[in-house]
């Protein structure tokens, strides 16, 4: 089966409420007031008119400034944020590594958290049963695995979280700023592991600010700016473009702003 992601004309608009849930009193008052601007809603387009087709074999790096919509794009593909316009078509099993350690319950043991976290990533009990030993091995936490994770150090937690996320065999891998945690030895091991899943997954989308890493791992790069796709192309060319046209430009604009 070949994996494929098609995004047609998708736009995602966030509405930011000064007061996220207005409460009954305010909304009653508001419904009587004529001044609709009192609604204190700021709207902004997180993603504008995204058209994108990604086929098997693509290792797509995504670069852009903070707030360009990189993570939002990944979250939209996973289904967390449904677009208000357009459609997304995904063919293949997605493994998101967007936020590691989602749903970790500090009162539960490492082993129980492996199951819980795996369940949240959409895996079945059977799959987790098969993967459990491998995850424990990889995290090198075998002797602590039955202790509540509140006794783990932050490095250990990071190792556990990474291991759960990384011991998979995905069709589509979405990575958002995933840094290996732990000591130098574990970092090296994690980097190797990431390379491994990179080569076995059919599609990889990698969001990173580490441009060297992107150049190294990706065969296509997409430049996102203010919610729009600016360019897509060869990694080296795109990264040069990004540095020259966007980073440099923003930098100058900031300087100009600072001087006035």
């Amino acid at each position: 089966m070949t994996a494929e992601i098609t995004i047609e004309n998708a736009s995602l608009r966030f509405r930011i409420y000064r007061n996220p849930s207005p409460g009954l009193k305010e909304s009653v008052i508001r419904s009587f007031s004529k001044n609709k601007s009192a609604q204190s809603v700021i709207e902004f387009d997180a993603l504008k008119n995204i058209n994108l087709s990604i086929y098997g074999g693509t290792r797509l790096g995504i670069v852009g400034l903070n707030g360009a919509g990189k993570s939002t794009l990944l979250k939209m593909i996973v289904g967390i944020y449904p677009p208000q316009v357009g459609r997304i078509h995904v063919h293949g099993k997605i493994t998101p590594m967007i936020e590691l350690g989602t749903g970790f319950d500090y009162e539960l043991s490492g082993r129980e958290n492996i199951y819980l976290n795996g369940a949240l990533l959409g895996r079945s009990y059977k799959q987790m049963k098969q993967l459990e030993a491998e995850i424990t091995d990889f995290s090198e936490l075998a002797e602590m695995i039955d202790l509540p994770i509140k006794y783990y150090s932050s490095g250990m937690l990071g190792r556990l979280a990474f291991s759960i996320g990384a011991i998979v065999d995905p069709d589509i891998l979405l990575l958002d700023e995933i840094f290996a945690a732990g000591d130098a030895h574990f970092v090296q091991k994690s980097v190797n592991r990431l390379r491994e899943i990179f080569s076995t997954s059919q599609i990889v989308m990698l969001v990173s600010h580490d441009l060297e890493q992107i150049k190294d791992l990706c065969n296509k790069v997409m430049v996102l700016h203010k919610g729009s796709i600016v360019k897509i192309g060869e990694p080296k060319e795109m990264i040069d473009y990004y540095l020259k046209e966007i980073v440099h430009f923003e930098h100058n604009a900031n300087l100009a702003h600072a001087h006035t």
């Binding site: 008119n49 058209n51 994108l52 087709s53 990604i54 296509k220 997409m222 700016h225 203010k226 729009s228 796709i229 600016v230 360019k231 897509i232 046209e245 966007i246 430009f249 100058n252 604009a253 100009a256």
Partner: peptide, 14 residues
């Protein structure tokens, strides 16, 4: 700055 990003043509798809 010579160009502004917003005025650039947006290339829609790969």
């Amino acid at each position: 700055p010579e160009t502004t990003i917003e005025s650039k043509n947006i290339i829609p798809a790969v």
